[in-house]
Design a protein around this nucleic acid. Structure first.
Length: 429
RNA sequence: GGGGGCGUAGCUCAGUUUGGUUAGAGCGCCGGCCUGUCACGUCGGAGGUCACGAGUUCGAGUCUCGCCGUCCCCGCCA
């Protein structure tokens, strides 16, 4: 690499405006833009270049009749070239307005062009609709970050952090940074370890959360503390789980459970209002852990749809169907979900679903189809008339319905039917 | 720790079930033409270690074994 010079920069055109913020109020002004080439449309005569900066796109027009030299050098422009362009902002001709662009009513008539940097052909298009593997995107992270959608993610994160700080500051919280290289404070997850050079053979543990320090601050009388902080947990990954992540960590003294819930509802409501303009209604609906497990089988229930789990243990605990009876005898439970109108599922579909619940430890998946001709089910013949009536009433069974049963220990039944519920609703992969 | 999917052009994928002539498509890329496009149009063209290695076979992108990479899930994780 060469050395750096403190002498004048090697470019002559200095940016005066953001591309994406040009509006009709700028018509008549001569501006200088700097940015990346989104796309070039070369008509042989006229050349259109969409120039992109972090605020958006603006269309630059190169006209051979205006300056044939500038026009001919515009000929060599390719995607992702970095340009500086000086030109007149003018209203677009009649019928040429592009309503899809915020800058679509104006364009810049190029008078000077400086190619600040050429670019190799990028491995994928810099646009929101890209369909590229995570691998490729990460390999060319600097290109992926140019995409408006990704930039916007970062922007939302920035605004949210600012919003949270502002809210908590206004509510008497004090932001404190806590140490990262520290002693292990086991919380269940494995620690990330950092070897110590000074104390050979010893290790620091990266914090799974700032728990210990938070308590220290409370004992010391800080009253209200917060921190937007990285946490580290050395566990295996999932699609939605990373080994390092950021928490809004906070603590309050001399308060009740209702106080903390209320402040958190206020904070979340403020974030949604300020960041995306959405009004949330408080108080938020509340549900106990026991109720969540009973009705949805999971501690993070998706309450946007029905398909709730129904405990039918008392109806079939003495059933002639051994799978039910034995589950009850061993202290387990029998639960069911009514997939309304799903009786049209094929035998293969049901076999696939049986394989699906097996992932969560279920040894089988009993089912009943309510057909026009009556019940269709591998085990209905073992049920008494009383049990059939009990199930019909408790599950609201009607023609066209498909009922799934789980009979096992409570955790297995909840996990299997809880996940099956999500699958049937199409809200999970 | 365990199970499953995927790997073919720069990118996204088809082709693998049933081995058989020169491995295809869309987008992108390169060149010609084009003065109102905005996912420009049009004509032409280039581009391949079928992840890698070994094996079976007259013949392997296709079958077998191994190996590497990657994604998803279970366990784990609050």
């Amino acid at each position: 690499m060469g050395g750096y010079s403190l002498s004048s920069p090697s470019f002559t055109l200095k940016r005066t405006q953001w591309c994406g913020l040009l509006r009709s109020e700028h018509i008549g002004q001569t501006v200088t833009l700097a940015g990346w080439v989104q796309r070039r449309r070369d008509h042989g005569g006229l050349i259109f270049v969409d120039l992109r900066d972090r605020e958006g796109l603006a269309q630059v027009v190169f006209n051979p009749e205006l300056d044939s030299l500038v026009h001919s050098s515009a000929h060599s422009i390719r995607s992702e070239y970095v340009l500086a362009v000086k030109g007149l902002v003018r209203e677009r001709p009649e019928g040429m307005v592009n309503p899809k662009l915020a800058t679509g009513s104006i364009e810049i008539l190029a008078e000077e062009l400086e190619i600040l940097n050429p670019s190799k052909t990028p491995p994928f298009m810099i646009e929101d609709r890209v369909d590229v593997s995570e691998n490729i995107r990460l390999k060319y992270r600097y290109l992926d970050l140019r995409r408006p959608a990704i930039f916007n993610n970062m922007l939302v994160r920035h605004k949210t952090a600012q919003c949270v700080r502002s809210f908590l500051n206004d509510h008497g919280f004090i932001e404190v940074e806590t140490p990262v290289l520290t002693r292990s404070t086991p919380e269940g997850a494995r620690d990330y370890l950092v070897p110590s050079r000074v104390n050979q053979g010893y290790f620091y543990a990266l914090p799974q959360s700032p728990q210990l320090f938070k308590q220290l601050l409370m004992v010391a009388g800080f009253e209200r503390y917060y921190q937007i902080v990285k946490c580290f947990r050395d566990e295996d990954l999932r699609a939605d789980r990373q080994p390092e992540f950021t928490q809004i960590d906070l603590e309050m003294s001399f308060i009740t459970e209702e106080d903390i819930i209320s402040v958190m509802e206020d904070m979340v409501t403020t974030i949604f209002k300020e960041i995306i303009g959405l009004d949330l209604v408080t108080p938020f609906p509340r549900i106990t852990y026991a109720e969540a497990m009973a009705r949805f089988g999971l501690d993070r229930p998706d309450t946007r749809f029905g398909l709730e789990l129904v405990d039918v243990t008392d109806v079939v605990k003495d059933s002639g169907f051994k799978v039910f009876a034995e589950a009850a005898q061993k202290g387990g439970i029998i639960k069911a979900i009514n997939a309304k109108g799903a009786a049209s599922l094929s035998r293969k579909d049901l076999d696939d679903l049986t394989g699906f619940v097996a992932i969560y430890g279920a040894k089988g998946l009993a089912w009943i189809k309510v057909n026009p001709t009556g019940w269709q089910s591998p085990f209905a013949k073992f049920l008494s008339e009383e049990e059939k009536q009990g199930l019909t009433a408790k599950l609201g069974m009607e023609e066209g319905d498909l009922i799934f049963f789980g009979a096992d220990s409570r955790p297995v039944v909840n996990a299997a039917l809880g996940q099956l519920r999500l699958l049937m609703a199409g809200s999970s992969s």
